[in-house]
Structure formats: C-alpha cells, structure tokens
Design a binder for these strands. Structure first.
Lengths: 160, 160
DNA sequence: GGCAATTAGATTGTGCACAATCAAATAATA
DNA sequence: TATTATTTGATTGTGCACAATCTAATTGCC
C-alpha cells in the first residue's frame, strides 16, 4: 500500500522489477493536479483575457505598493527573464501595464500597472472563491494541504 | 491563519480588499512544486536524454505488455494528440520507439518500444529513489500526500 | 581613471500544453 | 449502398518554461 511504488516509484524487490505506474507517482499527481488547476483557471480567466501565469503576475502587481522590477516579480514567482520578458510584453500590449527602465539603475526594468490593469483587479474579484468552490474543499483543509505541498517544494529546491 | 486568503485567495471582508498573495495560494503551491519537481527530474533525466514528460511516456510504455495507441497513452497521462504527436516523434527520432498505423484500425497509431527503449528502463532504474531522497520525506507520508493531491485533482476535473 | 567582475534583462532555441481545425478511417443507419 | 456521424491522429498557432548566450549598466578595486 504505502510501499515505494505506491508512493513514488518502482521497487526492485528481490530482483523483481515492480512496475512503475504514473497513477502511483506523486510527481504525476502534482503534474496532473497542476494541469487540472490550469484548466479550471482558464475557464475563469479567458473572459478577462489572461492566462494563469499572467494572472499570477497581475496578482503580484496588485499586491504591490508601486512599480516592481522584473527581477522581483521573478523572485516572487520563481520565473526567469526568458519567461517573464515576453509575458510582460503581452500584458503591455494588452494595455494592462507599462515597462520602462529604472532611471536610478538603468539595468533594471520597472513594471507599472496602468489604470486598466488596476481596474482588472475588480473584474477578477470573483476568481478566488470560484476556485475554492471548484476544489470542493474546506478552507482549513486547503490551507493544510497548501503548507504540506509548499514544504515539499522547498525541500526539492534545497537539493537543486 | 486558515482564512480564505491564506488557503487560496482574497477576502473581501467588510469592504476591505485583503491582499491576494501568490505565496498564500494553493494554486501557486502546486504550480511551483511542479516546477521544482521538473527541475529535480531534469538533473536525473538529462543524462538519459529524456525530459520529464518524455519520461512519463516511457514509464507508461515500460509498464505495458505490448504496443499502446496514442489514445491510451493520452488517457493515462491526460494529454492530447497535439502534445503527444511531436513528443512521440522526438522519442522516435531518438530511437526509443516506433510509430505505425494499427493494421486493424487504420485510424490509430501504435507505439512500440525498440530494444534501445527497453534498455533505457534499466538505465533509469535509480531515478525513483533519487526523487524520493530529494523529497526528504518518508514513503508513508508521501503516499498520503499523493492521495490527497490526487483527490483534489479529481474534484477539479469533475467540475471541468 | 581604468579594468575586471557582477548584475539585470533581452534574445534565441528547444520542448511542453492545448485549442481549433483538418483529414482519413470506421461505424451507424436509413 | 449511400449518407451521416464518430473516432483517431496530425497540424497549426499561441503561450509558458528554461538553458545558454549576449548586451549594457553598475560596482569594486587598484
């Protein structure tokens, strides 16, 4: 039941190569839960013209006092410039934010919300509770699960 | 602590717009845990010439008696042909499998392991326990966490 | 000042992920 | 059998994700 195969992986037990099965692997559980969440968000975010990673960037900006550097957004979301630069350009093209060099350090780019970007926060107000409903879980249990998954992620990142 | 914000989302409590924070959202926990797992796998799979999704496909084939259709691989991994067709072509180009029309139903494509594809199973034998080590968790706890994440995924898919 | 090292982003190239569309084969049925 | 609907993959186009590389700006140090 809770052997290494059911938790994660193959057992090589007395020379027997017990089958590895995606359905039994925690990595596949996380991988497929991520896909399922992305699909759930898509239905909610499509009307707002956002993808899920774009939504995460907007959430980050909505929660900030003022402009943020690409670097700080990348640190918050663990994404590099190769992912963020084109994503931010698409949000800029959509009129939700502006990108300009930091006058105090010309190496950095500052991302600022536009009025339209700020207004979107209100139109996205319902999203969290829709997601909560879709999980069918109690807030308390979700919070506990979130902490366990975060702890697992942090241990994985320690190794890397 | 376990309010809707810490579990998932914003509270609009008495008109106050409590900040939404990626670090507090379970969706971001899953999203970032998925990235962390992918990075952990990359270090192990690079020497084998596989990406993580390619590894999942190979695991699926290793666990099967004989050839599998694209459809059945897609059902196992919840991936569609737009993802699988090019991925399978890359594995074919790497000499790990062959693709041919099912003679009994010419609509289907049958995927078969080559000798080289089968040999790779042995070279990938150490992967699961390396992943287990990287999680720093007990098998028992990982199994429980896996079941909880899978249950969450299944509830999300029900809604979809 | 002059020069190496560092830092922040941008760019390029590869590979998922998936919606939408298309074509071919098969199945269902009048 | 002719017609229609369904099934299976392939294709196309958009958008992450990330390694590797490049440029420009800044910092450190002499």
């Amino acid at each position: 039941m809770d052997n290494i195969a059911s938790a994660l992986c193959t057992i090589y037990f007395q020379g027997m190569n017990q089958q590895l099965n995606p359905a039994d692997m925690i990595c596949y559980a996380i991988y497929s839960a991520n896909h399922a969440l992305t699909r759930t968000y898509r239905a909610l975010l499509d009307p707002l013209g956002l993808t899920y990673p774009q939504y995460l960037v907007m959430v980050t900006l909505w929660g900030a006092d003022g402009p943020l550097s690409v670097k700080s957004i990348g640190q918050t979301l663990t994404l590099d410039s190769g992912t963020l630069t084109p994503l931010l350009k698409r949000l800029e093209a959509a009129g939700l934010l502006t990108r300009m060099r930091n006058p105090e350090d010309e190496r950095g780019t500052l991302i600022s919300l536009t009025g339209s970007g700020r207004e979107l926060q209100d139109r996205a107000r319902h999203v969290p509770e829709e997601i909560l409903k879709a999980t069918g879980m109690e807030i308390k249990d979700l919070g506990r699960l979130k902490r366990e998954i975060t702890a697992l992620r942090d241990r994985l990142e320690e190794q890397g």
